[in-house]
């Protein structure tokens, strides 16, 4: 999983990964769901990269504390990269 890539999950959903951030050793991606035409939708998710039995998996994050932390991270990263 890396920024600027489209991942396809086992449930056949495609996400474009926009930003990456880390908390401790975990990587979290801000992603947007793509529709059938591979166009971005309005559904945004935060996906955590996890390895399960050697397989790379994406876990959607709903925990508010984590999301809040990540929001700040993304905000600063955006400010650094685009301001």
């Amino acid at each position: 999983m890396m920024v600027d890539s489209i991942i396809t999950l086992a449930n056949n959903k495609n996400y474009l990964l926009l930003m990456e951030s880390s908390i401790l050793d975990d990587s979290y991606f801000l992603g947007v769901l793509l529709d059938d035409n591979m166009e971005p939708t309005v559904d945004y998710v935060v996906l955590k990269k996890v390895e399960k039995d050697g397989v790379v998996c994406a876990q959607q994050i709903n925990n508010l504390n984590t999301l809040t932390q990540l929001l700040e991270e993304y905000g600063s990263e955006y400010a650094e990269n685009y301001n």
Partner: peptide, 30 residues
Amino acid sequence: TPDPEPIPVIKSIPAKIMDHRKQILIIIGI
């Protein structure tokens, strides 16, 4: 609410996305 179970990534391909478009998506995402 517990985070849902991780779902295996079955494919990952690099995407070409124009900078300004990506910027828009990021802003909206944030």
